[in-house]
């Protein structure tokens, strides 16, 4: 039984049950664009009984309230322990793990790191990180498409938090869902590689809006591509005028120094 979240051990598997639901129900969508422009979708189940004795209860609760509460607890814990925490998000294959590997190899003598690896399946990335000698915990989300604060709160139980300066969290490869789930990090860092479209920031605006830093990765490939880096940076700033952008290559090492200086400066500040 977990004290902060009150969960039992079985909850940690995050196996969501999918029940068969082949019984009939009708879909009814009413689109009313009245004065409030409220767009209402009502989904009627045939077995839904309207009840004359029913009464309305005001709830007004944020659906993410539980995640946000656990994220706040994580953040408080990290603050108390003086740990700088980054949540790396991107599409699959943008180079999150490669950036982590290189960063760890280059900075491990100067700062004490730990890594949480989020993937739906396999511990391949954790094996890559472990090869750098840095403590790593793999979290498999199964069907889940994002890490949440609860998973992080348990993952960090594997580390000696008193002996840590920086916690790097590699989220599940996905530019949609991780945008909504605060993990208790200091900053979301979105990775975009030059082999993707320049317009990714406009296609996935919530993620670029919520991130404080963007790493434009694989710049070693720029000579071979038509990718317009200026246009890409301009689009990122349209969604988030304050976003900090580092152009770099985890492969050649180009541009990594500026990223390291940023991490080091944020770490010393604390």
């Amino acid at each position: 039984m977990c004290t902060t979240c009150g969960c039992g051990p079985e909850e940690l598997n995050h196996d969501h049950h999918h029940h068969d639901h082949d019984h009939h129900h009708s879909h009814e969508h009413e689109h009313e664009h009245g004065n409030g422009h409220v767009h209402s979708h009502s989904h009627d189940h045939s077995h839904a009984a309207e009840n004359a004795t029913a009464r309305t209860v005001t709830v007004e609760t944020d659906i993410l309230a539980k995640n946000n509460r656990l994220a706040r607890e994580n953040r408080n814990l990290f603050f108390r322990k003086g740990i700088f925490v980054l949540n790396l998000v991107s599409s699959p294959g943008s180079g999150k793990t490669a950036i982590l590997e290189r960063t760890l190899l280059d900075l491990r003598e100067r700062l004490r790191f730990a890594v949480i690896e989020g993937d739906q399946q396999t511990d391949n990335d954790a094996v890559r990180i472990a090869a750098t000698g840095v403590p790593v915990k793999q979290v498999n989300t199964g069907a889940g498409c994002h890490l949440d604060a609860h998973m992080v709160s348990h993952a960090v139980e594997n580390f000696d938090l008193d002996a840590l300066d920086v916690l790097l969290i590699e989220n599940v490869g996905n530019l949609v869902c991780p945008a909504s789930f605060d993990l208790g990090e200091n900053h979301k860092v979105v990775v975009l590689s030059v082999t993707e479209g320049e317009d990714k920031p406009l296609k996935y605006p919530a993620m670029f809006h919520n991130a404080d830093v963007m790493l434009l990765n694989k710049v070693d490939l720029l000579p071979h591509l038509d990718f317009d880096a200026d246009k890409c940076r301009e689009m990122a700033r349209r969604v988030n005028p304050d976003i900090l952008i580092f152009d770099l290559s985890a492969k050649s090492g180009e541009g990594m120094d500026a990223w390291y200086r940023w991490i080091a400066s944020r770490t010393r500040e604390r």
């Binding site: 004795t53 309305t56 209860v57 709830v59 007004e60 944020d62 659906i63």
Partner: peptide
């Protein structure tokens, strides 16, 4: 917004 506004109970 991402909120439960209200509900009807028996």
């Amino acid at each position: 917004e991402l909120r439960v506004k209200e509900m009807e109970v028996e």
